[in-house]
Simulated scan of single mutants.
Amino acid sequence: MNKKTLLITGASGFIGSNFIKKYEHEYNIIKTCLIEKTPEELDLTGVDTVLHLAALVHQMKGAPEKKYYEVNTELTKRLAVKAKAAGVKHFVFYSTVKVYGFDGDLNNHDFVLTENSPCNPNDPYGDSKYRAEKLLRTLEDENFKVATIRPPMVYGEGVKGNMLSLIKLINKLSIIPFGYSKNKRSIISTENLLAMTHLIIQNSASGIYLGTEGIPVSIREIATSIEKGLGKSRINITLPTIIFKILCKIKPDIMVRLFGTLAFQQEDNYKEIGYKAEASMDDEIKKMIDKFGGKG
């Protein structure tokens, strides 16, 4: 079987570099930097699939609003137009769950989003990605298939962000306030996300993929998994109701991230590619801990 030729934008980023490391022998890979070359300057002769990872992600300190649309929307459109004109058959676009405009719910823990749920992005990052999704759909036809990936929170070896902050906090404290088990949060390890991406490319699949690991987990389950990885036992308490409510009023953003429900369920498409999450949460969190040296 001939190897597919895969052009990857954002190849030096976290997902791109890890994908290449894991699957470099499965594909003929062309790494592309869209800062050095415009889409119009690319030679896409012989390329089977474009894996478009390059993006302006959500900036904590903010970024000019128009920059999100220049990079995430217009650049994506130009790349896809170029790819289609060059005869590329498959385009895989990394989007975000921010397209839903929903950051979590502290009250309704039964609420679940699917790939078919309505999108109402509430910031330039999510909106620019959603506009790109819609533009890509207008280009899709029998000869140009488009797959969109909307990953939830990603964790695993080398990942930073909220999960790593939580690991460091639990590593420091002997008493932790994460006994809450009502919330449901969908997360995906790097290993499972890469495997899903690989299956999408191998099957030239189209449609929307959320990147889930089956049953969503509570903050208590995540904390327990972190304790296992650290090899440390913690006294895990549940915040008294009155304190929980007060914190929800004065620190709503933090409370939603920790105790809110943000759950996703794939309604279809997984069967088409044969995806099933294989890497376990305990194993992947342990890899994170070993990577940053938190154990012991």
Rank of each mutant, 00 (worst) to 15 (best):
Q59E: 11
D48C: 03
G274R: 01
V88D: 07
F91W: 07
N143D: 11
Y23V: 07
K84D: 10
Y125Q: 00
T148M: 09
P121S: 00
A223H: 02
L44Q: 03
G294E: 14
T32H: 14
V154N: 04
L135T: 15
T261W: 04
D283Q: 14
D290H: 13
K295E: 14
S280G: 04
P121A: 03
I235C: 07
V217C: 05
M196P: 08
G13T: 10
K168H: 09
Y130C: 02
D123N: 09
P216V: 10
S174D: 14
A83V: 10
S181I: 08
H198A: 11
Y180T: 01
N108M: 04
K66N: 14
E41Y: 02
M153N: 13
Y155W: 01
K84A: 05
K21F: 14
V47C: 07
G260Q: 01
K291L: 13
S17H: 12
I176F: 02
I30T: 07
V50T: 02
G274P: 11
I8W: 05
A63N: 03
M163N: 04
L34Q: 06
R78K: 11
Y94P: 13
T212K: 03
E65F: 14
K77E: 15
I149V: 13
V88Y: 08
G10H: 11
L258F: 03
K66H: 12
T76P: 14
K22C: 10
T76A: 06
G214M: 08
I273H: 08
F93Y: 06
E221Y: 00
Y209K: 01
T261Y: 03
G161S: 07
L164E: 13
H25T: 15
K251E: 15
K172Y: 10
Y275S: 01
N269D: 05
K89Q: 13
E41T: 05
N183Y: 04
K287D: 08
T73S: 10
R220Q: 07
G16P: 00
G161T: 03
N116K: 12
K291N: 12
S218L: 00
L230H: 01
N143C: 11
G87Y: 12
E272N: 14
K82S: 09
S117W: 05
L7P: 14
T9I: 06
L199I: 12
S186D: 09
L169W: 09
Y125T: 00
K67F: 13
I8G: 08
N203F: 06
I250L: 08
E278T: 15
E36F: 10
Q59R: 12
V256W: 12
L34V: 00
N122W: 04
E157V: 09
S218W: 04
N236Y: 15
L139F: 03
F259E: 09
V57R: 01
I235T: 11
I35K: 15
K232F: 13
Y155C: 05
G101M: 04
K66S: 15
F19H: 00
R78C: 10
D268T: 10
Y209P: 02
N192I: 04
L230G: 06
L135G: 12
G179T: 01
E227L: 05
K145H: 10
A195E: 15
S206V: 12
